[in-house]
């Protein structure tokens, strides 16, 4: 999702992208070595193609959803404005200045850490399961991950098209600071390529992270360390979206519900198909 579709043709974008992906790649390499381990990787290499074939339909589903996502994000805003359901005021009425209270914790150190969590940590959290479950003996978690992500995107995108909602930093300037973008302005050039600022409900950062963590907890027998890392990271990502002034508490709650619900749905789908087979 971080793959920038097209650059605005200035080097800072490339630089930010390299830093974000670089951070995620380092984490990915480290986790592959420590959590999966070289021996498991070696054995997985032989049987990997079978697992891939098994999981192919699910991975294809995810690919299709991502493709639709990419197209729909172009026309989505126009449809949203035509529908004209602006949820920003409702969300603010529900939670008031909650995000402002979250930001009262702000320190430069915490901002630096959570900015990295939001950008690189998130990419790592979402990509590592594919490596880990490819290397695992059971193909079920791989299928589950693909389906769950697809459901997250499908429902999230539907909400994005249905509702217009601006984040706290856009409604409450001066009260809620846009911490990520005021500390690292160049990152907004990157996220501006990927996201539209009218799409904050629900938080897909939260929902996908929660999904990844929920599946990680399921596979704790195989990867006990990953269950811990993923849970902590998912919580940090969810928190960072509010701390950085990007999402409302309401978006995060909706994201948690969506994340958990998607795993439940994925479970049902993968279970049913396995039973059929």
């Amino acid at each position: 999702m971080i793959a920038a579709q097209s650059s605005i043709g200035v080097s800072p974008l490339v630089a930010v992208l390299a830093r974000v992906l670089g951070g995620a790649a380092v984490a990915l390499a480290l986790a592959t070595l420590t959590i999966i381990g070289p021996s498991r990787l070696a054995t997985a290499y032989g049987s990997g193609s079978d697992r891939l074939r098994e999981a192919a339909p699910y991975l294809c589903l995810l690919a299709v959803v991502l493709l639709v996502n990419k197209v729909a994000r172009g026309v989505g805003p126009e449809v949203s404005w035509a529908l004209g359901w602006n949820a920003t005021g409702v969300i603010y009425a529900i939670e008031g200045n909650f995000v402002q209270h979250v930001q009262s914790l702000a320190t430069p150190m915490l901002t630096a850490v959570l900015s990295r969590v939001y950008l690189s940590g998130y990419v790592f959290l979402l990509t590592f399961p594919f490596v880990a479950y490819f290397a695992a003996a059971d193909e079920r978690p791989l299928k589950l991950t693909a389906v769950t992500y697809a459901v997250n995107y499908a429902i999230g995108l539907t909400c994005y098209v249905l509702f217009i909602s601006y984040g706290p930093r856009n409604l409450l300037p001066g009260q809620v600071e846009s911490l990520l973008y005021s500390t690292y302005p160049q990152t907004q050039i990157l996220t501006g390529e990927v996201n539209v600022n009218t799409n904050v409900f629900p938080s897909l950062h939260t929902s996908l992270s929660v999904s990844a963590a929920a599946i990680a907890i399921r596979t704790r027998e195989t990867y006990p360390a990953w269950a811990v890392v993923a849970s902590v990271l998912a919580a940090a990502v969810a928190f960072s979206t509010m701390y950085l002034g990007i999402h409302w508490g309401t978006d995060v709650v909706a994201g948690v519900v969506l994340g958990v619900g998607s795993v439940a749905f994925g479970d049902w789908l993968v279970g049913r198909r396995s039973a059929d087979a």
Binding site: I8, S11, P12, P185, Q186, Q188, I189, T191, G192
Partner: peptide
């Protein structure tokens, strides 16, 4: 070049991209 915010504009200026 379209920039998402004033802050990003100043950043681009500081790196001599504009």
């Amino acid at each position: 070049d379209v920039v998402p915010s004033d802050g990003a504009a100043v950043e681009l200026l500081a790196t001599d991209a504009v």
